[in-house]
Design a protein around this nucleic acid. Structure first.
Lengths: 330, 330
DNA sequence: CTGTTAGCGCTTTCAA
DNA sequence: TTGAAAGCGCTAACAG
């Protein structure tokens, strides 16, 4: 085993003081070119890799951005993370990403763990129950950006969709296409985005003079399997609807599988696009948006606040749009 | 702005020495319960959050696992990351995740950036051109695990699929179903997994006495759009095949879209499952595997090596299996 | 079981 | 432009 070279080793090898070596390797311009050259050669020869922990400790600045999301294996969240990564990289920062599985307890301990790294900021899909913690961190000037979901009782930067409006116009579009009998299948109510989506759909139905049937909540974790089970119960129930409003991508996937399996003529209104939506045999009304852009926007807010901590908290809305697809196979 | 409390602050507040505070907060058992209580109360009151950078510096141990993958927004890689996260969490470690976009240059600078954090280990989908760097890190006893792709010229822990065998049996299955005219559409050859998959498919065809048509390489980045374009060129070409072998999930999605759009009776053989594969109107032969498990396996190897650096490098193969699906809508 | 002291590798401060 | 010295917050080593 070879010991990792330190800045001291580099300085000694180059025959300069440690400070000169530090200057060269952190890109300070005012260094004699001859010395600079020597230092760079020494660093390369020793395979020097700066110790960021040490640098952080002294300077108080780390080079990491923390991110806490619900589920890294869900394409929505991983795309969000990819967007944050785009901007973090542009600023020369690394991303620490954690999945909270949406439980307040896990989220709470992840906040602790991530903050222990002293990241320059935190991007989080907040869960109810961690507000106090977030407030405490925000008070210490750590920029925190809430993304997708809204925190309660704390005024920080946020980036969300217009859940209510998007859902309303998605359902309204399906009504225009002639659908009359809607059922909403919703992911668990612990997701704060679900409420406005369900409400928006109901508004559109009421406005069209259509009945609002009881929302079917997916039981269990936010997976395609549980959603499919819920979809079967709806499709096989006493009154099969002619359209199902799916409150997110995971629900939509489960519903899509069930609809094809049952060969049902049931249109899908889906908040979030999903893979192969275009191949569905039934009409699909996608409430579409740019998820990666949402991640980028959140990270951009974070770095803006880092530049100027005095900025008033911003509340960004990412636009949604309606896209008609599916129905190709009939 | 409030200054973050340090261990010293906690110790003073609790009226004990800093070392006692340290012991309590890092869970050492041998502490007087009365003092323990005082310390815990003080820590909570001051909203103490340990500074991991300082701890790392002193102890030499960080609590992060580094991961460098090609594309976080690709469900395959994000699921891999989720699997690594599962195990990392079990060991109380955080995950730093970076997307290299598959370019050696970016991967190389990411390795530097990640290693500067002194993670306990690195899990990477290696790109040709970064081997020397990986060797240098492995020499310093940092556990490195290559996942999905194989590194060249360096003997470290690896976790891969049996790409050749999986592809062979996938294509052989399609042959058994009566398909005779195959075209392979492959993601860019910079992915080292593609070669064995293409070769395995060709072997199965040869063994069945069927012709091996030239492989169609997807031009450009590994996206559904580029794959779909390639698929159109195949479907609209002079001799439409009756089966397409897709070398990964992204290619499969593009091909699936094109097949449905053209209403073609073309079976899909896909390395990797993909969302809604079950809803395809054509037969789909999925060369299936547990991606999350692959991530878990990689992380498990990493922690095993951390426990015992003397272990001989292990080379794990994650099993693939054949699953028939699709064809439901006919 | 508890406390003291030193020092991890780096950057900041200040002096030359 | 360069260098010396101090110290960031924590834990290891050792003494009590």
């Amino acid at each position: 085993m070879i010991r990792r070279a330190t800045l001291n080793d580099v300085a000694r090898e180059a025959g300069v003081s440690i400070k000169t070596a530090s200057r060269v390797l952190s890109g300070v311009e005012t260094v004699n070119p001859t010395l600079r050259d020597k230092v760079q050669r020494a660093a390369a020869g020793l395979d020097y890799r700066p110790n960021r922990a040490a640098a952080m400790m002294r300077s108080g600045r780390s080079d990491m951005v923390g991110m806490i999301i619900r589920d890294l294996s869900n394409p929505f969240y991983s795309t969000l993370a990819a967007g944050v990564g785009d901007i973090a990289e542009r600023h020369g920062r690394l991303l620490i990403t954690c999945s909270s599985e949406g439980t307040p307890h896990r989220q709470s301990s992840l906040i602790e763990a991530v903050m222990s790294q002293r990241p320059v900021g935190l991007i989080i899909t907040p869960t109810t129950g961690t507000d106090r913690q977030l407030i405490s961190e925000a008070d210490r000037r750590t920029p925190i950006v809430a993304v997708d979901e809204l925190p309660t009782g704390i005024n920080i930067d946020t980036v969300t969709f217009d859940n209510s409006r998007g859902s309303r116009s998605g359902v309204a579009t399906a009504v225009k296409l002639g659908r009359r009998n809607f059922v909403t299948i919703s992911a668990g109510p612990q997701l704060t985005t679900m409420g406005p989506r369900v409400a928006g759909a109901a508004e559109a139905l009421s406005a069209a003079g259509l009945p609002v049937r009881p929302t079917v909540d997916v039981i269990g974790p936010n997976t395609t399997d549980t959603a499919r089970t819920a979809a079967y119960s709806v499709l096989d129930g006493p009154e099969r609807p002619d359209a199902i409003f799916c409150t997110n991508n995971v629900v939509a996937l489960g519903v899509a599988e069930a609809i094809v399996e049952r060969q049902a003529d049931v249109a899908i209104v889906s908040f979030d696009d999903f893979s192969l939506s275009s191949t569905m045999p039934v009409p699909v009304i996608v409430i579409d948006h740019d998820t990666r852009q949402m991640g980028r926007a959140a990270a951009t807010l974070l770095f803006a606040r880092l530049d100027d901590p005095q900025l008033a908290p911003q509340h960004l809305r990412i636009a949604t749009s309606i896209r008609l697809t599916g129905g190709l196979q009939r």
